[in-house]
Simulated scan of single mutants.
Amino acid sequence: MSVQITIRGVSEEVRDQLRVRAASRGQSMQQYLRGELTRLVAKPTVHEWLANVRTRKRLSKNRVTTESILQARDADRK
């Protein structure tokens, strides 16, 4: 089920730029904005991404120490 969203207080410059971007894709502004909103929510926020990384790290049995990283880095320098 779709719903309507109203955004107030958008400057004319922003509206005009959105209209230009939509036209360059051969879309109405409504089609363009719908696609952009869909694309926006498909990506996790920084907080969601970081929480996911922390969860995977916590669940992982592999632990890499700073010392082992530095040893591996310096291995070919000798």
Score class of each variant (00 low, 15 high):
M1D: 06
S2V: 14
V3W: 15
Q4F: 15
Q4G: 15
I5C: 11
T6F: 10
R8V: 11
R8D: 12
R8K: 11
R8C: 10
G9A: 01
G9H: 01
V10H: 07
S11A: 05
S11T: 10
E12N: 11
E12M: 12
E13M: 10
V14W: 10
V14I: 15
V14C: 10
Q17V: 15
Q17Y: 14
L18G: 06
L18A: 01
L18T: 03
R19E: 13
R19M: 13
R19H: 11
R19F: 13
R21Q: 11
R21P: 01
A22T: 06
A22K: 01
A23Q: 09
A23M: 08
A23N: 04
S24W: 09
R25E: 08
R25D: 02
R25I: 02
G26M: 02
Q27P: 01
Q27Y: 07
S28P: 02
M29P: 00
M29V: 15
Q30W: 07
Q31F: 03
Q31K: 03
Y32F: 04
Y32S: 00
L33N: 04
R34D: 05
G35T: 01
L37H: 06
L37M: 05
R39D: 10
R39T: 09
R39K: 08
A42Y: 05
A42F: 10
K43W: 07
P44M: 03
H47T: 15
H47I: 14
H47V: 15
E48I: 05
L50C: 04
A51D: 08
N52F: 14
T55S: 13
T55G: 13
T55Y: 08
T55D: 13
T55A: 15
R56H: 07
K57Q: 12
R58M: 08
L59I: 00
L59N: 11
L59Y: 09
S60T: 00
R63T: 01
R63M: 00
V64L: 10
T65V: 08
S68T: 12
S68K: 05
I69K: 03
Q71M: 07
A72K: 06
R73G: 08
D74G: 07
D74T: 12
A75V: 14
A75Y: 12
A75G: 07
A75N: 09
D76K: 12
K78H: 15
